[in-house]
């Protein structure tokens, strides 16, 4: 029972981070129909930028976070404007490949400036443990779940309530109709990338706090694919469900069966979902016409 509870907490916190990473991915896909293979590298850049501000420049936590957000905004805008916008309307292969190229460049930049060694970063979240139903679980994992929940809630409130959020939903629904209503599709595209970079920053910083500031953070990005396929490529609630399911599944499999199998089980789920229900749990089914 103890194992079960701690596995559940680990799974939920992993899942919460996956949901955050997947949120950015879904935002980009929803608004611009781009599959962003560089999502993991966005996490990586976010984590390293926060590390630079917090540890290297010795800024207080709040300022360091603001610095990270600033860099994320610049990154999002620059990437959208100079890399993705020229490719609007191009074939899916080109768009996928350009994000793959982007991921190689971002990873290489981090490697050039910071090397491959693991960087020391003092813990941001409290490191103690807490008793939950008889099991000892680390406090920081619980806090991560809380933060992720707040951020996800804030994002969905943004989409439901704010002007820009509604504009984004309109563009996702029908670009041409949105254009005729006077919505700037270009601005929405930029906004989608910026928000994705910011959610990736949050996920990256939290992930670095749970593990370490290192290149491996980028690998976390690949796990986004099973999550978004499970939840539906264009569904924000889907990322939460998908993230939590994949996070829990990985922890249970690695705890009760085989840690190696845990790495591949999300992909097996992915294939199964693709065969049975390609548009995921909450995804929108599209009818194709010639």
């Amino acid at each position: 029972m103890n194992t079960f509870i701690s596995l559940t907490v680990y799974g939920l916190s992993d899942g919460a981070l996956l949901a955050l990473a997947a949120l950015g991915f879904v935002l980009i896909y929803k608004a611009t129909r781009v599959i962003n293979f560089a999502q993991g590298e966005f996490l990586l850049v976010g984590a390293y930028m926060f590390y630079t501000a917090f540890v290297v420049m010795r800024l207080p936590l709040i300022l360091a976070a603001l610095f990270g957000v600033l860099v994320a905004i610049v990154l999002g805008v620059v990437v959208e404007r100079f890399v993705l916008r020229p490719l609007i309307g191009e074939h899916a292969i080109s768009v996928i490949m350009v994000t793959i190229g982007l991921s190689a460049v971002l990873k290489a930049l981090v490697q050039i400036f910071y090397g491959t060694a693991v960087r020391e970063q003092p813990p941001i979240l409290p490191t103690g443990t807490i008793q939950v139903a008889g099991a000892t679980v680390p406090l920081n994992r619980l806090i991560v779940i809380g933060i992720a929940a707040i951020v996800l809630f804030a994002f969905s409130a943004f989409f439901q309530r704010s002007r820009h959020g509604v504009a984004m939903r309109a563009v996702a629904d029908d670009q041409q109709a949105a254009l005729t209503m006077g919505i700037s599709v270009k601005r929405v595209f930029s906004l989608a990338w910026v928000l994705a970079a910011i959610s990736a920053l949050i996920a990256g910083v939290l992930l670095a706090d749970l593990s370490a500031v290192e290149q491996g953070i980028a690998g976390f990005g690949l796990m986004v694919f099973p999550v978004v396929i499970l939840g539906g490529l264009d569904s924000v609630p889907g990322t939460v469900v998908g993230g939590l399911v994949i996070g829990l599944l990985k922890q249970y499999v690695s705890g009760y069966a085989d840690p190696g199998l845990a790495e591949v089980i999300p992909y097996i789920v992915l294939v199964a979902i693709l065969i049975v229900r390609p548009y995921g749990i909450f995804g929108e089914t599209r009818i194709e016409r010639v």
Partner: peptide, 20 residues
Amino acid sequence: PALKNAVFGIAIIVFLLVEP
């Protein structure tokens, strides 16, 4: 090694943008 990765990524991006 990092330079190789960077050049690799830049080559992909430049080709896709300039001569797809």
